[in-house]
Amino acid sequence: MRPPAALRVYFLRHVQVALNSLGRLYRAPLASLMTAAVIGIALALPSGLYILTDNLQRLGSQWDGGANLSLFLRHDVSIEQAEALREKLAQWPEIERLRLITPQEALAEFRQLSGFGDTLDILDENPLPAVLALKPAAEATRPEAAAALKQRLQALPQVELAQLDLQWVKRFNALVDIVQRAIWILSALLALAVLLITGNTIRLEIQNRREEIEITKLIGATGAFIRRPFLYSGLWYGFGGALLAALLLALAFVQLNAPVRELAGLYESSFRLHLLEPGQWLLLLLCGALLGLVGAWIAVSRHLATIEPG
């Protein structure tokens, strides 16, 4: 179905005004670029920090020592029973990896690490219990989930003590949490800055075109007609700023990618820097354009009404 003629004309006029506004910015390239660059930096900063914490979190979940659980078995549990328990626990979906350390193995390890060597021979009985060392599956590494898993394991009759080595994960997650909160606050402040920048730029534009606004009002222009070019200017500033922000992020990525690969290689890690998903790029452009539009809207509603022909 073809849209009705009036709607087509309306749409066409919007396209025309949008292109005119863009052309006006293009004719003052330096001033336009400066405004867009300031907006771009303001948008790139929180986006870049977000990407940084996102990568830290990916790195954290890749870390083998993520969250580890040690199950110390009772002394009266035999090797066979311990082996049976290991096989049973291996079926649990919350558990990714599981290793049985027999008392002999534990003693050998202790002997080697402690250097007590011969002294241990004096003992006629091995005092060390069998231990099941397990690593929770990825979903169960968050502190609450890991604690719940520990509770279930502690309740098993064969288990003397379940010990959760959580400190590192807890600290890491808490740190990321704080940083992410800080990024939200920073984002809000910088969004405000973008509003102020576009608002001020549009205010100056309104002042420069005061005569034109008066004359068009004189000839019967509606408020919407006069507002439209300024709103599109704001939209373009925001969109252009977001494009520049994307460019800055990509440049930073290129600068950091090679050294990070090299470092990961040294640790035999497959870790790779991760930029943004396609949807997130789109969101960045959308946010930029929207902030520009809102900034222009604020300037327009505050300053256009005061211009009346007389």
């Binding site: 009002k217 004189l218 000839i219 019967g220 222009a221 509606t222 408020g223």
Partner: peptide, 12 residues
Amino acid sequence: RKVPLVRRKIGM
């Protein structure tokens, strides 16, 4: 809001 419509009837 109707002022622009009035002005369009007038050549000034």
